[in-house]
Design a protein around this nucleic acid. Structure first.
Lengths: 213, 213
DNA sequence: GACTCGACGTATCGAGTCGATACATCGCGA
DNA sequence: TCGCGATGTATCGACTCGATACGTCGAGTC
């Protein structure tokens, strides 16, 4: 799912590897932190598949730091200030849209959910809701399984193991409640936004109508 | 750290791979779940290092099912009821004690802490406390780093990304509070167990007697 | 009896990921 | 001028997972 995260970030602006990694880790918060050993091969693979291509980075107009002029030699091995920026190709945009509109089990498993959630701003409302609900079911299933396994164990465990299990269960329960809140919010929004249809408008900049918080 | 978990489990009773994995995953609760592709190579490596050795499993005297006699051929490829039980060697026990009494950074990093915690029943009180405190510092450091990184970001993120970050921070904060409770419990126990020779007492808490309260 | 099915049990493989590391440029302060 | 830390690209070894293969065994089921 690293690939999806990359495509999602590049859909907002072209970026080079170093910056991409920083944003990636910021995007996923304190959860995951992809390393270069993962990122660069993934970029290569995406280029090979024609989903992204190299490009010039934005001049970063906010600060005065302009991109350096190509004064003199540029040892092609690794360019002398060798920024290699990437941007989506049309195929990449298309592929990203396909992925973002999918909501199968692959979207709500542990290793994918946070990436998909981080890209919710680019995901349509219906898919958001389906992913949240699928994730919720997945977690409650696991809750059930762990509780059952613990009950079936006739060996009595020491207090530390029990505390670890209790803590783990509590974490998952809290996650479920978090999802409940998100699902409620999404349903409310869907009700407020839509009376008869209107499934699209994924770009629509956030409706500042905060009056009904 | 899989190796430590294996040694810790085998220190209680000899086990074969299948059972070992079940207990391993029960031990670590809903956190981690080692797979066979991890377990069996680890067992091999431990045998090669002389820390564990094959043994006969316990006869499971509760039910009438006795271990089968070696009647006839036993295709050595995978024994016909090919349970291969493992037990600690003296070197293994010694190594386990060394590991369990260590409390360096390796003990409280993400990938090790839960295993070490699950083996707290076999760990002495002083080491328990050091690991818990080290873990707490580690988490607060991360909290600080993430908060700072978020503050330094001038790009304003969409609401979903923000929510993901908020949720992640909250999880870690809750983890810290969990550790606080455990640390308090451990300190109280140490006080109850030992009167005068308190090792560090960096907090120097007011000696209020809560046993009557 | 013959059939399937699911639990038990050992074992490997490919793919994905991390952490460490290497190498290079740049700006900055001592 | 020197080192140092941030920026920047890139690879390697080690670890882990999920899927899969192969095999035994007991319990149904018709």
């Amino acid at each position: 799912m690293l690939e999806t995260a990359i495509l999602g970030l590049l859909n907002e602006s072209p970026l080079h590897g170093y910056e991409l990694r920083k944003r990636l880790n910021l995007l996923l918060g304190s959860f995951r932190a992809f390393s270069y050993g993962t990122l660069y091969p993934a970029l290569k693979a995406l280029v090979a598949r024609g989903l992204i291509e190299t490009a010039d980075p934005e001049p970063t107009a906010t600060t005065g730091r302009t991109a350096r002029p190509p004064s003199g030699k540029a040892p092609l091995t690794t360019g002398r200030r060798g920024r290699i920026a990437y941007q989506l190709t049309p195929e990449g945009k298309e592929h990203l849209q396909t992925v973002l509109s999918s909501s199968g089990p692959a979207a709500w498993e542990d290793e994918n959910f946070d990436v998909r959630f981080a890209l919710f701003a680019q995901t349509d409302a219906e898919t958001r809701l389906r992913i949240l609900e699928g994730r919720r079911i997945r977690l409650t299933e696991r809750l059930e399984a762990v509780r059952e396994a613990a009950a079936r164990t006739r060996e009595r465990l020491d207090e530390y193991t029990l505390e670890l299990q209790r803590h783990g269960l509590e974490q998952v329960e809290r996650e479920v409640r978090w999802l409940d809140g998100l699902i409620t919010t999404e349903r409310d929004r869907a009700r407020g936004r839509d009376r008869d249809h209107t499934t699209g408008a994924p770009d629509a900049p956030s409706p500042r109508s905060k009056e009904r918080g």
